[in-house]
Design a protein around this nucleic acid. Structure first.
Lengths: 128, 128
DNA sequence: TATAAAGTCTCCTGTTACTGGAATGTAAAG
DNA sequence: CTTTACATTCCAGTAACAGGAGACTTTATA
């Protein structure tokens, strides 16, 4: 099938699918006549896989790794679990950061009158 | 003072400080002899301000806005509060996303044996 | 069948907020 | 006077694409 069909089936944009071909993560066959990319069902399955992994916040390089594990019938689930645990840990870090950011900001907002006068504890804090 | 001094006082890297000059957010004077950037205490205060605002997850453009509010003695605290509330809202969104990501991933991890056998519910989920 | 429209191709630029490095020039220390 | 430290500009790279130009192929319509 052509690229737009593959894009539709995988829920990705044509641009993204073409990008994935460029970076050699999903490399479709080529129609010799037209030079058009020609996607198999298997290619679409890979696109789907990557799309999902991306939504789980895995980077492209991690997707590459997961994909090769996925295609390796002898892989151990241990390896996949390890990658996933590392991902969870990095998400936890971000969660912590954002939580404390949020707390500090909302504290500042609560101290700020939000009126037409210039006095503003938010700016005061930023300039300390 | 020279750029390295300004960088040290503001807790930013020299590269970053130079970058901030390039994008015209903190524009120091120039030494006519050497062409070196020459930072005043006021410039350093701005660098500090920006550094803090960045740590609060404000983008450079938002920093620009906050900085001009900061320098406007007639600004109303309302404007600053509005920006900050918007920032909190966007952080809340990210928090929500990351929370649900985390939950899904840890659910998958709990289902995965993590042994030397190939069966892996994580990959199964990604390939669905 | 001629033409128009839709789809595809490659290549280039821009995004965010810097970081690293090369080549070169200036200032301070010995 | 030379070494060393610090400064300058300019270019490339980062992550993961999106947008657009110009050219070509395929498909649909008149």
């Amino acid at each position: 099938m052509n690229i737009s069909q593959a894009a539709k089936l995988s829920g990705l944009s044509v641009k993204t699918v073409r990008y994935y071909a460029d970076i050699k993560i999903v490399e479709p066959a080529r129609d010799i006549q037209s030079g058009y990319r020609s996607y198999s069902n298997d290619d679409v399955a890979k696109l789907n896989f990557i799309g999902k992994a991306r939504r789980f916040n895995f980077s492209i390089e991690e997707c590459r790794e997961l994909l090769s594990l996925y295609q390796d019938k002898n892989r151990s689930s241990k390896e996949v679990k390890k990658l996933t645990l590392a991902k969870i840990a990095s998400i936890d870090e971000k969660l912590k950061e954002f939580h404390s950011l949020r707390d500090e900001l909302s504290h500042l907002v609560n101290c700020c009158n939000g009126d037409d006068r210039p006095s503003c504890p938010i700016l005061d804090e930023l300039s300390k």
